[in-house]
Write a protein that binds this DNA or RNA. Structure first.
Length: 461
RNA sequence: GUGGCCAUAGUUUAACGGUAGAACAGCGGGUUGUGGUCCCGCUAGCGAGGGUUCAACUCCCUCUGGUCACCCCA
């Protein structure tokens, strides 16, 4: 919050305005540039260790569960051709048309920082012929940063992280249900109360047909007057988006509107019913939301969103969002390949995690059990060797060989919350012994150095 | 991108149109090779620029950043 310190390029701290001129070697007077503050760019942030552990924890839980379901970690470029996103995400979408960091590179190529992971993963799938992989369907797992030039807000940065899963080559509704299950399990393990909303938007043809019906419906003066200005625009640009409008008038107007579910093909409906059956089987609670549509062009059939309980989603509350995109691989130049996926917004999940469990045990720092303190040069040398030995044997040990006095070292040991502090000094070196101090009781005893492992094992139990 | 609210040490904050106060953190002490609790000291701040005024951290404007709603999305 608030101001962050600025890095002033000039040494004297107070005199910021010393834009003096100075003489160069050739005696020409050159105006010195105003010292510019170097700060973070808007919507960008540094994630410091204390904060980082939350995201780290979320990612580790998500990745572990995804791996268990057969997904394998993948990396893709942060920079791609602009046309990749224009074609897949959709040239008309806000993500591509307004929010993408796109520029012309030196070799005259239009490139963009990835605003989404799915297009890159689809491109990668096609480009490497992953449909030839022995293990089908192909299950890809990706974690990383994405870039969107939006107006920043809490849980919404211009560089943000997602965990993405994508499954290629599987048309069965089991796949839909499994993916939703994975999302459910991740949030559950993180202790976040979230509910999944689900809908089917049918196939591309159904959508077009339905969109026409919707436009038709709103031609009626009586319902049209209820629409907000925004929604009238939407009706022209992307009629389906009117469905999840937050506007009260629009919601009233929708009361008598044709339902999407009545306008999707029998196949798509069958598929949807199956998905729901499997979810029932897995005992995953869900809410049918006939107004759920998603903003990206490529979705078809099943779409879903996990929102924190008590929040009716659709805003920036969405924790996980995804769906099917059976047509995308072919549209992008690959073979016809059914596919689906979701994305988890790491920053938003972290926000919820901190809300629910500010100091939960999960995202704790790597807490050491032992602190190794040293006094005197000879002891330091021995301690350095000993420390490495402890590390290799798997003990979680902290140290500060840079500080020489014992007081400081014990202070640090205390702050780290270790159970034991081992103390090596001149005396101990001479006697070939070591001190073991129990940090809670403050009791300490001398032990034969040879017995140190035996003793710490006993005490760490 | 549109609109509202906000901006004080590293962090959380107090006050006032008249010299910015605290807590926590950090650093150093309370004699030597012993932490936590306690005591003392030190470091450190009005986001930037302009205006009004004898005087601005305080009032006004602009910018920057944050935040909330909309838009959009994870």
């Amino acid at each position: 919050m608030g101001r962050k310190p600025k890095i002033n390029q000039n040494q004297p701290k107070k005199n910021t305005n010393n834009s003096e001129s100075f003489k160069k070697a050739d005696n020409k007077i050159v105006a010195q540039k105003q010292p510019k503050e170097i700060t973070r760019l808007r919507g960008m942030r540094d994630i410091l260790p204390d904060e980082y552990r939350y995201g780290d924890y979320v990612v580790s839980v998500a990745e572990r569960i995804c791996r268990a379901y057969g997904f394998a970690k993948t990396e893709i470029p942060a920079l791609e051709q602009v046309s990749l996103y224009e074609r897949s995400t959709g040239k008309q979408t806000d993500v591509v048309s307004k929010e993408m960091y796109a520029f012309v590179d030196k070799d005259n190529e239009r490139v963009a920082l990835r605003p989404e992971a799915t297009p890159g993963l689809v491109r990668s799938y096609i480009e490497h012929g992953l449909f030839n992989l022995p293990a089908q369907p192909v299950r890809l797992l990706w974690t990383g940063s994405l870039f969107r030039r939006e107006k920043p807000q809490a849980g919404r940065y211009r560089q943000f992280s997602q965990v993405d899963v994508e499954m290629f080559g599987e048309a069965s509704p089991v796949a839909d249900a499994q993916l939703i299950t994975m999302g459910y399990l991740i949030l559950k393990e993180l202790g976040i109360a979230a509910a999944v909303q689900i809908n089917s938007i049918g196939d591309a043809a159904d959508r077009d047909e339905y969109a026409k019906k919707l436009v038709e419906y709103f031609k009626d003066r009586k319902v049209r007057v209820l629409l907000s200005v925004d929604d009238k625009k939407r009706l022209l640009k992307n009629p389906l988006r009117v469905l999840d409008s937050k506007d009260e008038g629009t919601q009233k107007a929708l009361a008598g509107a044709p339902q999407m579910i009545d306008h999707i093909s029998d196949e798509a409906r069958q598929h949807f019913v199956k998905v729901l059956e499997y979810l029932d089987e897995f005992d995953i609670p869900y809410t049918l939301n006939p107004f759920l549509v998603r903003g990206l062009d490529y979705y078809n059939r099943t779409v879903f969103e996990f929102c924190p309980e008590g929040e009716d989603g659709s805003s920036q509350g969405t924790l996980i969002g995804g769906g099917r995109y059976d047509g995308l691989v072919e549209f992008m130049g690959g073979r016809p390949t059914p596919a689906l996926g979701w994305a988890l917004g790491v920053d938003r999940v972290v926000l919820k995690l901190k809300e629910k469990a500010p100091q939960s045990a999960g995202p704790a720092m790597d807490a050491p059990d032992i602190f190794l303190a040293q006094l005197g040069d000879a002891a330091k040398r021995k301690a350095m060797v000993f420390f490495e030995e402890l590390r290799v044997k798997g003990y979680r040990v902290a140290q500060n060989f840079v500080k020489d006095n014992l007081k400081t070292q014990l202070e640090q040991a205390n702050k780290l919350g270790v159970k034991l502090t081992l103390i090596l000094g001149q005396k101990e070196i001479m006697d070939n012994t070591i001190l073991i101090r129990d940090m809670e009781s403050g009791m300490q005893e001398v032990f034969d150095f040879a017995k140190v492992y035996e003793e710490i094992d006993k005490r760490l139990k």
